[in-house]
């Protein structure tokens, strides 16, 4: 059974992300995914995520969430890295302080993607976002995700 623990862990959470813009956020969070052994070609993945960020004119939404993501051959294991900034950073016309960087391998359409989709769905709900903003530790964030994302 696929669970949230297969796609993320406390090492992929940065509660004090200190970046100036969306592209830097992608770089920093991709670094976490790479250290966690989920990327086979970090540069290729970053290029894909940056390209998509540019294409969409900002992946942030009014509720302060940005979900940069890419499907890329540079991804070995699907995963999501979570970053939180002290002050919202500018994404085109929007601002975001909760940033989820999603990495999916090319052509992947399995349970991992379902988990990622499920996580994205839960973000619509304000209480989940509030909890994420108030979380003190990476482990606490993972626990919140476990509670919200059940398949």
């Amino acid at each position: 059974m696929t669970t949230i623990d297969e796609i993320t862990n406390a090492n992929l959470v940065a509660l004090d992300l200190d970046v100036d813009g969306p592209m830097e956020a992608i770089d920093a969070l991709a670094d976490l995914l790479d250290k966690d052994g989920r990327l086979s070609d970090k540069d290729a993945y970053i290029a894909a995520a940056r390209a998509r960020e540019e294409e969409t004119g900002g992946t942030a939404m009014e509720m302060g969430i940005a979900i940069p993501h890419a499907k890329s051959g540079g991804v070995k294991e699907p995963g999501v890295a979570f970053g939180r900034t002290a002050a919202p950073i500018q994404y085109g016309d929007e601002k975001a302080d909760l940033i989820f960087l999603i990495a999916a391998p090319d052509g992947e359409n399995n349970l991992h993607v379902k988990v990622l989709s499920q996580l994205a769905r839960r973000l619509i709900h304000e209480n989940f976002r509030t909890s994420l903003r108030e979380a003190k530790t990476g482990e606490e964030v993972i626990e919140l995700m476990r509670r919200e994302v059940k398949l």
Binding site: R52, T59, K71, I102, S117, A120, R121, I124, H125
Partner: peptide, 17 residues
């Protein structure tokens, strides 16, 4: 959405809610 992972799922949840 082009990848069909995040934004289309969020829109689905938002509309359902």
């Amino acid at each position: 959405c082009p990848t069909g992972i995040a934004h289309s799922a969020m829109a689905a949840e938002a509309l359902e809610t």
